[in-house]
Design a protein around this nucleic acid. Structure first.
Lengths: 204, 204
DNA sequence: TAACTATGTTACTGTTGCTAACATATGTTA
DNA sequence: TAACATATGTTAGCAACAGTAACATAGTTA
């Protein structure tokens, strides 16, 4: 996903313009930042006129939402995958989810920012929220197992949110270059491990 | 600061165009978001031609940096002021700093985002960092007092960073509408209090 | 007063997001 | 297969924008 080559069209019709535009947009955003991204650039990359995208997206925002959705999806997959390297429901597996989160932010800072700053365009926003909730679910399930709770109840949620908050903050501070504002730079992994241990209730 | 009325010029020269532009930019950004803000709008507000700003700022980015700097400054003042309502160097005063931080984010979400996402324009960035460090110092001093450390040493810094991370994450999740993704919405004050207690080492 | 500097103006450029009118390909039905 | 409908592309053009160049005016200093 988001890996396929960008290919210009061969005939009059493109074949998969919609997908290619999301793809091109994703790359350009990661290169130039969300502001430095222009519809025209994406069109040039896809080898198509500047009017073509509007057959597939109602606006630039509409395209960006698709990029954000794709990002949230991949973030969820990353977290799930990384957690699976550890015994389920342990501090280690929960910390691994946090690392996946921060790693994603560092790997795709502009997309990460986009994923969480997209409010506009009411219609599509509900889709975004759904994908987001699904990714959050990865953490919730892991914490539920840690706590020995049978399902995702209030206890699980109240316990998980501070963990999210922590890695979310760490992600932004990382991509905004705030890890070394002082003479004692922050180690991300250590930071996540310590915070996870402290924020999680001690296991009986 | 950032409170003065926007006044159009009376004669050929404006009098305080630079200040008025920063002012106008700040207001417009808070109204329309950083993307919805245009140099032209700011000019209209100040009653000046669209070329005038370039006598005072080398680019739009350059103006935005000024807005960000002003925001960081005011954030530091807010934190300092709020902490002073409590006995110095206590969990309460430290939590109060956190509340000031999140409150600022909620009050001026767009400015807040701008304050932490401005990397470009190398020259001015050092000024930004300096103001930022000064604001961070408010927290560092408070934590030093809590720990009984005589100055801002490594212990103080390592202990403070997770607190920053936490409120920073909470700020973003708040302004991005993530406090109620589940059926159990988050209480900001409670959230800050709990996290502060857990992340701070217990006082002998 | 003359010269210099700071700070405004108008007129212009190239880029952008987006729309309208038109063109071409694909699928469906008679 | 012919005719039509629909999806998806094109060209031409709009208004708004960031930024520049050449010029104008005001304040400051020699």
């Amino acid at each position: 996903m988001a890996k396929s080559k960008i290919q210009k069209k061969s005939g009059y019709h493109h074949g998969n313009l919609r997908g290619q535009l999301v793809n091109a947009a994703g790359r350009l955003i990661e290169q130039n930042g969300p502001d430095g991204f222009s519809m025209s650039d994406a069109c040039r990359l896809a080898g198509v006129s500047t009017a073509a995208p509007y057959r597939h997206f109602s606006s630039k925002q509409d395209l960006l939402i698709e990029v954000a959705k794709d990002g949230l999806q991949r973030l969820g997959e990353d977290m799930d995958h990384r957690a699976s390297s550890y015994p389920r429901g342990t501090v280690d597996s929960i910390a691994a989810i946090g690392r996946a989160y921060v790693d994603f932010a560092i790997r795709e800072p502009h997309t990460f920012r986009l994923m969480f700053s997209t409010k506009e365009h009411s219609g599509r926003i509900e889709e975004l929220k759904t994908v987001g909730r699904s990714s959050y679910g990865v953490l919730l399930r892991e914490v539920a197992q840690y706590l020995g709770e049978p399902d995702i109840n209030e206890t699980v949620i109240r316990c998980s949110f501070p963990l999210w908050t922590q890695v979310h903050g760490l992600s932004f501070l990382s991509i905004d270059g705030k890890l070394d504002v002082t003479e004692f730079p922050v180690d991300i992994n250590e930071s996540i491990m310590i915070a996870t241990e402290r924020l999680l209730p001690a296991k009986g």
